[in-house]
């Protein structure tokens, strides 16, 4: 049900764009207005999300300690998995962002006869996650050929490298294959593994379907249905230079593609996809584990509340503590010798 709902939404969106672009005014709406709007939502939403996170205090050091912390000199510290210095944190973040180190550490638990619980390493998510993200990056950078004129050298270099196998015409880009394969894996993983399926929500399936549909329409356009790239570049380059031209014969599939991308951009800041920004602001990764070396002051502490030591606490409550039979550091001062004279007062 969660799966079908997400799939249904994506299919409806595709249909809307396909039919919408066929009516007069549709191309301008789907080709110009929506992409611009979506880009604004993307940038604005992204910034406001990050600013919102930046406003939340992180009162404690909460790095996940995945290795030996800094300790006595003869105990070897794991500098990357439990960093205590800024350099260590930078190393950890670089590995996290560029190599998805925490996914690499993924383990799988299995129960065998016995019963015996067995943990094994599970690298598939890491591998396909890495393939997915890098091919996505390559594809995004390659698309800059449609938004820039003259096309910068790094885009041309990337196109050359990506089409290196020189299969067919137009040449096959490896990243296209890897991308669709990896999205398919990431989807299959959610469907096939019962435990993962149980925790998967429409918010997990929808982006997968959306991204798959974007990739599939792109592949269709390039290798199968084929579109007039020159006319399309006139439009897309115009989007970047604020003088879009809708000319020539742009087929409906292009508007489906660009509408899905617009939806993705507009949806991005409000979804789990914000881990693009979130990974940088993740306090379990970007804090040094140095609580025993540096005093961290809780930012929301009220400065008018002064420290209250145990000694002064006991001074305040010693009588009651003694009365309740609690141990005290300092005994009550001996009472005036009138103890057995109840008539006092």
């Amino acid at each position: 049900m969660r799966i079908l709902k997400s799939l249904g939404i994506v299919l409806v969106l595709m249909l809307v764009a396909y039919l919408g672009a066929a009516v007069p005014g549709g191309p301008a709406l789907f080709g110009v207005v929506f992409p611009w709007l979506a880009f604004l939502i993307f940038v604005g939403g992204f910034i406001s999300k990050v600013v919102g996170w930046a406003k939340s205090p992180v009162p404690f050091r909460i790095p996940t300690t995945c290795g030996q912390a800094n300790s006595l000199p003869w105990i070897k510290q794991n500098k990357l998995d439990c960093p205590s210095t800024t350099m260590g944190v930078i190393g950890r973040m670089l590995l996290e962002i560029f190599a998805f180190r925490s996914l690499f550490r993924n383990t799988r638990a299995e129960i065998h006869d016995g019963p015996k619980l067995v943990y094994g390493s599970s690298k598939y998510l890491w591998l396909f996650g890495l393939m997915f993200h890098y091919s996505f990056l390559v594809i995004v950078v390659r698309h800059m050929r449609l938004f820039t004129d003259p096309v910068p050298f790094f885009v041309q270099a990337l196109e050359f490298g990506d089409g290196f196998l020189q299969v067919g015409a137009p040449v096959l880009y490896q990243s296209d294959l890897i991308f669709l394969g990896a999205v398919t894996f990431l989807f299959a993983r959610r469907v096939v593994l019962p435990a993962i399926r149980y925790i998967s929500l429409p918010a997990d399936y929808f982006p997968l379907f959306l991204i798959f549909a974007i990739g599939a329409t792109g592949v269709l356009m390039r290798y199968f249905l084929r579109v007039d790239v020159v006319s399309i570049k006139q439009l897309t380059h115009g989007l970047a230079t604020f003088q879009p031209v809708l000319s020539g014969n742009i087929s409906g599939i292009f508007f489906v593609h660009i509408f899905l991308v617009s939806i993705l951009m507009a949806y991005f800041p409000f979804s789990k996809l914000m881990h693009l920004g979130g990974v940088f602001l993740s306090p379990t990764r970007n804090l040094a584990n140095n609580s025993r070396m540096v005093r961290h002051i809780n930012p929301w502490n009220d400065p008018s509340i002064k420290p209250h030591s145990y000694a002064s606490y006991e001074d305040d409550f010693r009588e009651f503590m003694v009365e309740a039979g609690l141990p005290v550091d300092k005994e009550l001062p001996p009472k005036p010798a009138a103890e057995d004279a109840p008539a006092e007062s």
Partner: peptide, 8 residues
């Protein structure tokens, strides 16, 4: 992300 805008 605004590269194409300022580039051209």
């Amino acid at each position: 992300i605004t590269f194409p805008i300022w580039y051209g």
